[in-house]
């Protein structure tokens, strides 16, 4: 393995990455001594995990281990919160490996590091984070893109990594990747030319759109907005409380089904409890017909008046 020598260094989701692969989607950074370094290497991955506790159509999970083969792309093996091994399939394009690495492998890594990965995009407002969580297709990335166009800094467009500050115990969101993933129609409505983005996978009309800057440090969280579309006429917003809030946040946990088999049931629950107890959440419903311009103004106005 002569190619092994060249290494790349990044910082994302609260960890330093020492990588065998180049990631244009990540912020370059050299490891500092205080934070752990996650090693990313090409190598052989197992067929089956030894202590297998759960599996699905693709994944396998065991205490502190996660294995994910993706047909024609690569197999990812995430271990102990500090090691990711990638076994690429022959002739695969690196950009395709990155798509699954940045979502699935990094999501599993977050669980292993006892962070809380929430399916949410996030932007910075007045030095604090506003999160937009929801199912795939409700407009999380579009909303992040729109706020980006308005001059707000984007913190992440897909997974929000929530962490507990070691000394103060405060909940913080970690800056994510320097890219938005946008579908072609969203690119059009944001007036972003196709040339400004990179096609993520052949056969998929979805682009990686680089964003120049994201916050450098973890941020305090002002609020979580649970986003959905509905067939009514008015934009609706109301506080989420108690069991309802708990259920929403639990449901939007990224790959929640990995928590128990990887052995994090109790610490994960404690973090979820903490998030529900300390962060305000709102249900935010966008009418189908509603254009995004009015919607963004409405949302902006709401988080300004609810600081």
């Amino acid at each position: 393995m002569a190619e092994e020598t060249k290494r790349f260094y990044y910082y994302a989701n609260g960890v330093y990455l020492d990588s065998c692969m180049k990631f244009p989607e990540l912020t370059p950074a050299y490891p500092s001594s205080e934070k752990t370094v996650v090693k990313i290497e090409f190598g052989q991955t197992p067929e089956k995990l030894e202590n297998l506790k759960a599996k699905g159509v693709r994944f396998q999970a065991a205490p502190n281990e996660f294995l994910l083969p993706i047909d024609d792309v690569a197999t990812f093996w995430v271990k102990n919160g500090d090691h990711i091994i990638i076994q690429p399939e022959p002739r695969v394009n690196e950009s395709e490996i990155r798509v699954f690495f940045l979502a699935s492998a990094m999501g599993a890594l977050a669980h292993q590091r006892r962070q809380f990965p929430l399916h949410a995009s996030a932007i910075m407002y007045n030095g604090k984070a506003i999160l937009f969580s929801g199912d795939s297709g409700v407009g999380k990335s579009t909303l992040a893109g729109l706020f980006h166009k308005k001059g707000y800094q984007v913190i992440t467009d897909d997974i929000s990594i929530i962490d507990k500050e070691k000394n103060t115990g405060q909940l913080l969101i970690e800056p994510g990747y320097i890219q938005l993933k946008l579908w072609e129609d969203t690119m059009n409505s944001l007036h972003i030319g196709k040339k400004e983005g990179v096609l993520l996978r052949p056969g998929l009309k979805k682009y990686g759109y680089p964003i120049s800057s994201i916050p450098k440090k973890p941020l305090e969280i002002q609020a979580i907005y649970a986003l959905s579309v509905y067939p009514g006429k008015e934009i609706l917003v109301r506080p989420l409380e108690g069991w309802e809030k708990f259920r929403h946040i639990k449901k939007r946990t990224f790959r929640q089904k990995l928590v128990d088999p990887m052995g994090y049931t109790e610490p994960h629950y404690r973090l979820l409890e903490d998030i529900c107890q300390s962060l305000p959440a709102f249900q935010l419903q966008r009418p189908f017909e509603e254009g995004y311009t009015t919607f963004v103004e409405f949302v902006e106005n709401h988080f300004q008046t609810n600081q």
Partner: peptide, 14 residues
Amino acid sequence: IGSDIDGETVMMSV
């Protein structure tokens, strides 16, 4: 484990 969230109780089985 039970926790109190906004005055409601949520419980989880470890």
